[in-house]
């Protein structure tokens, strides 16, 4: 395998509170290969957005990275100074957030924001930067881009605004784009347009994508590989097709069964009993064990490590441990 573009190893993020330290991310490891789209899926509170924020150095205090490392092309980027991180953010890692309004400054025209970003990170003239910005807006599907570039963010509709954000994220030609719920705030009909655009344009520019979402459908349509997060730990990671069609971790299996589809008929949905534990009440052993129908004694005491599985997959579940298999 070629050297990964982004490599996250044993990442631990904690929040000190007065009732003790809460461990929001607990030993998360994954890689993103150049040009790859990695989907990161999980329920609210699973820690998917936190992982993204940690990578781009935007973890909000009191949250802090306690251990582990994040490498971009082999170079550590956790614990960089804010100034050094700013050079990476925008230039080498682009960002697309759920609410386009948080990434766009309402007081400046789209042109000003795009040109400023391009000129901050690239050594080009004002005119050249503007030319690039217009071309990019045109590429993301803004009609009459040369005219609309001088509009303010509020003059665009929701879907168009998200297109502008994508243009902004890509204008310095980053190697990695972190998209945190990029389509959640949009209507179904607009959502599919944005998914298609994001996928195409990143492929075109050769950028890798870390796609954070709660929507398995979006992942299925977009990602090459998917990592399933549960209680700040990765339950399962592997190629999208195999994880969706034959999930191995009991949590992923339950999750997939609980999603109603447009093609499959069932009277009742599969339901996982209970809900994800709060951070101050994560059970010992496997975090999923109280809700798991296949849990056995070991799951309640010992936390499963990621076990390599055929087909480039990894599952953190004792069901797949050799030791268990031999013991019966």
């Amino acid at each position: 395998m070629t050297e990964p573009l982004l490599s996250v190893r044993d990442l631990v993020i904690e929040f000190p509170t007065r009732r003790g330290v809460l461990r929001a991310i607990d030993g998360v490891s994954f890689d993103i290969a150049p040009g790859e789209v990695l989907g990161m899926v999980g329920e609210s509170g699973a820690g998917k957005s936190l992982t993204g924020a940690a990578i781009i150095g935007l973890l909000e205090p009191p949250g802090r990275i306690v251990s582990g490392e994040i490498k971009l092309k082999g170079e550590r980027i956790d614990h960089l100074s804010p100034a050094a991180m700013r050079k990476i953010r925008g230039r080498r890692i682009g960002m697309v957030f759920q609410d386009p309004l948080t990434s766009l400054n309402p007081l400046y025209t789209v042109a000003k924001q795009l040109i400023e970003t391009i000129r901050t990170h690239m050594n080009v003239s004002d005119a050249e930067a503007r030319k690039r910005a217009v071309a990019l807006l045109d590429r993301v599907g803004i009609p009459a881009a040369d005219r609309r570039i001088d509009d303010y963010p509020h003059q665009f509709s929701g879907g168009m605004r998200q297109r502008v954000v994508i243009a902004l994220a890509l204008c310095a030609e980053p190697e990695l784009v972190i998209a945190d719920e990029p389509t959640t705030a949009l209507d179904v009909s607009v959502q599919s347009q944005i998914i298609d655009l994001l996928k195409e344009i990143c492929a075109e520019k050769g950028a890798s994508v870390m796609l954070i979402t709660h929507d398995m459908g979006v992942i299925a349509e977009t990602a090459d590989r998917v990592a399933v997060l549960y209680s700040g730990r990765i339950a399962e990671v592997g190629p999208v097709a195999s994880v969706i069609s034959e999930a191995e971790h009991p949590y992923t299996r339950g999750l997939m069964g609980s999603i109603p589809t447009l093609t499959h008929d069932s009277d009742r949905l599969v339901q996982i009993p209970g809900s994800m534990p709060r951070l101050n009440a994560i059970p010992p052993g496997c975090a999923f064990n109280p809700r798991c129908t296949q849990a056995f004694d070991r799951c309640r005491v010992e936390r499963p490590f990621p076990i390599d599985r055929p087909g480039d997959r990894r599952v953190a579940c004792w069901l797949y441990d050799e030791q268990e298999a031999t013991h019966g």
Partner: peptide, 16 residues
């Protein structure tokens, strides 16, 4: 057509 497809049928949808 716009609903993301979980079945991975790979259908080419009409662009919305």
């Amino acid at each position: 057509d716009a609903v993301p497809d979980l079945a991975l049928s790979g259908r080419r949808r009409t662009p919305v």
